[in-house]
């Protein structure tokens, strides 16, 4: 009778050990089970009942399993946090390298760049402003399309260049020098009047009719 009770208690304890995390169980389940058997055996040898001990150890096992799971979760969170930190750091480094390696040449533009941003992007660059080329200007004119607004004819290419910097006030005059036109890409210099500056630009002819897209713009110095 006592033997079957002990066997049952051992079986229950073995089941409870399954509640521990796998890694913990792999390392300690066997010696823990062995110790449970030793403790029950000790009490049986002394003619004592093992039920009180067994219940106490069941409770301890439940608490222990919970603690180990919490510890593992905390460790996993730390590991995840570390991975995220390293990932974000790497992305930051890659982005910094990309930005720095782009700086000296051309600043790719997205619609909506203002004067401040263009000047910021141009810091540290020393591009010379580009001269006019009538041959290139004629080639652009050949590919350009026009639209008429209130009786006035507007060049789509010039319109694309004219809005290169979004916060230059409307009505500000500018001179557009066309330096080269190759592979559907125009390079030249855009010189605003007043203090709005002079910039080298790259504008690409898009396949759609009448569409020109500003690709880069950088402050330049007149020679």
């Amino acid at each position: 009778m006592a033997r079957s009770t002990t066997a049952r208690q051992e079986a229950t304890y073995a089941k409870l050990l399954q509640l521990y995390p796998t890694s913990y169980r792999r390392q300690f389940a066997e010696p823990m089970q062995q110790m449970f058997v030793d403790l029950c055996h000790e009490r049986t040898q002394n003619g004592l009942d093992t039920r009180g001990l067994a219940y106490r150890l069941y409770a301890e096992t439940l608490m222990g399993a919970l603690t180990q799971h919490l510890q593992e979760t905390r460790m996993n969170l730390k590991t995840t946090q570390a991975k995220v930190t390293i990932g974000v750091g790497l992305i930051g480094i890659i982005a910094a390298i990309a930005i720095l390696s782009n700086r000296p040449t051309a600043q790719l533009l997205h619609p909506g760049l203002g004067l401040k941003q263009v000047r910021q992007l141009s810091k540290g660059t020393k591009s010379a402003c580009l001269a006019d080329s009538s041959a290139a200007a004629n080639a652009v004119k050949h590919d350009d399309t026009f639209q008429v607004y209130k009786g006035t004819k507007f060049s789509n290419f010039e319109s694309a260049a004219g809005i290169a910097i979004t916060d230059v006030p409307a009505g500000t005059n500018y001179h557009l020098a066309i330096n080269s036109y190759a592979n559907k890409t125009v390079t030249g210099t855009l010189a605003y009047e007043k203090d709005y500056g002079t910039y080298n630009y790259t504008i690409k002819k898009l396949p759609a009719a009448g569409q020109w897209q500003l690709m880069s713009i950088v402050a330049c110095q007149k020679s």
């Binding site: 150890l57 222990g64 180990q68």
Partner: peptide, 11 residues
């Protein structure tokens, strides 16, 4: 110390 406490500490 029961097995849970002992082996938890040993770990």
């Amino acid at each position: 110390m029961g097995p849970g406490t002992l082996y938890g500490s040993l770990k």
